[in-house]
Simulated assay, not measured.
Amino acid sequence: MAALRFLYDCDPGADDALAMLLALGRRDAIEMIGVTCVAGNVGLAPCLNNARRILELVGRQDIPVYAGAARPIMASRGRVSIMHGSDGLAGSTLPPPVMELAGGHAANEISRIARAEGKLHICATGPLTNLALALILDPELPNFIEAITLMGGAAFCPGNTTPLGEFNFVVDPHAAAIVFEADIPITMLGLDVTRQALVSAEMIRRVQEIGTPIADEVAHLLINYGSKDPCLHDPSAIAWMLDRSIFTSVEAHVSILTEAGPAAGQVLAAVSERHLAGRQPNCTVVTGVDAQAFEDLFVEALHRYP
């Protein structure tokens, strides 16, 4: 079976970096064809640097990196996460990037790449600003997107940035609302499942034993980022693309609250017939994961690097 080709929209971020390293180790199953960056975990400039630092680490300078939105749609500036350190990679010693950025704004490039692919799969693990802008600029774009797998939201559990909201959706709730209203098949891996995919001492030990430069960098990220947030948020989205059998999920109609205030970015996930009120589900909400199988999948991918 041919590898699933996908565009990665992200805000690297330590857990985005871990997600990239998981994906890039499994070229047999999924093939990253481009990276579009958005401000989120850190500002846009360090996100762009970090994406290229990771690609250079694994020798994948052939994958283009595009600059996207530096702020949310309806705010003059976003918020950043304190979990990733000042550089976004938890104080990594990776050198500054050498590879050049690709030309074009991420929103335009999403549209161009989707048309070139015919049916594009997108994995998004940051605020959804780039995707929302692409959908605004190109109303026909949903016809060229096969599916979106995203990390974001908190459907049936408390938030991590506000009591009701997860970071990515709180940063740009309007963007999230636009994406969920676009009639595109969406799989959402939010805090409901990512809080079950945890960094463990055993996982760190297994990664350290591999003994390659790539595994050493992964161990650094797991130790330094995991000490602040032990949840492997963004790698969960990649793991879903690799092996859905280790997850559980429900079909729901998801909408996003956008009104300013403590509920901005909250997910309303209707599952029961009564709550659906005649609406059809628009999202697969992932709710559980086999944590040991997830760890095995992650570690095995690192063994595949030369």
Results as ranks from 00 to 15, higher is better:
residue 4 L to F: 02
residue 6 F to L: 15
residue 7 L to K: 01
residue 14 A to R: 02
residue 20 M to N: 03
residue 21 L to I: 14
residue 23 A to D: 05
residue 26 R to H: 05
residue 27 R to I: 12
residue 27 R to W: 01
residue 33 I to M: 02
residue 37 C to Y: 00
residue 48 L to E: 13
residue 51 A to V: 10
residue 60 R to N: 00
residue 61 Q to W: 00
residue 73 I to V: 15
residue 75 A to L: 13
residue 76 S to D: 15
residue 80 V to T: 13
residue 83 M to V: 08
residue 85 G to K: 09
residue 86 S to W: 03
residue 91 G to L: 12
residue 92 S to W: 04
residue 94 L to V: 11
residue 98 V to H: 04
residue 103 G to Y: 04
residue 104 G to F: 10
residue 113 I to Y: 09
residue 113 I to N: 09
residue 117 E to C: 14
residue 125 T to A: 06
residue 128 L to F: 08
residue 130 N to Q: 11
residue 130 N to E: 05
residue 134 A to H: 11
residue 135 L to T: 06
residue 139 P to V: 02
residue 147 A to M: 04
residue 150 L to T: 15
residue 151 M to A: 13
residue 153 G to N: 09
residue 156 F to V: 06
residue 156 F to N: 09
residue 157 C to D: 10
residue 164 L to I: 04
residue 166 E to I: 02
residue 176 A to E: 07
residue 181 E to W: 01
residue 182 A to M: 04
residue 184 I to F: 11
residue 184 I to D: 12
residue 186 I to W: 07
residue 190 G to P: 08
residue 192 D to Y: 09
residue 194 T to N: 04
residue 194 T to S: 15
residue 195 R to I: 01
residue 200 S to V: 03
residue 204 I to Q: 09
residue 213 P to W: 08
residue 214 I to S: 00
residue 214 I to R: 00
residue 218 V to S: 10
residue 222 L to A: 06
residue 223 I to H: 05
residue 231 C to G: 00
residue 235 P to F: 08
residue 237 A to L: 06
residue 243 D to S: 01
residue 251 E to V: 00
residue 256 I to H: 06
residue 257 L to N: 03
residue 257 L to M: 07
residue 258 T to F: 06
residue 259 E to D: 13
residue 260 A to F: 05
residue 263 A to I: 01
residue 271 V to R: 11
residue 281 P to I: 06
residue 296 D to Y: 01
residue 298 F to A: 01
residue 301 A to P: 06
residue 303 H to Y: 13
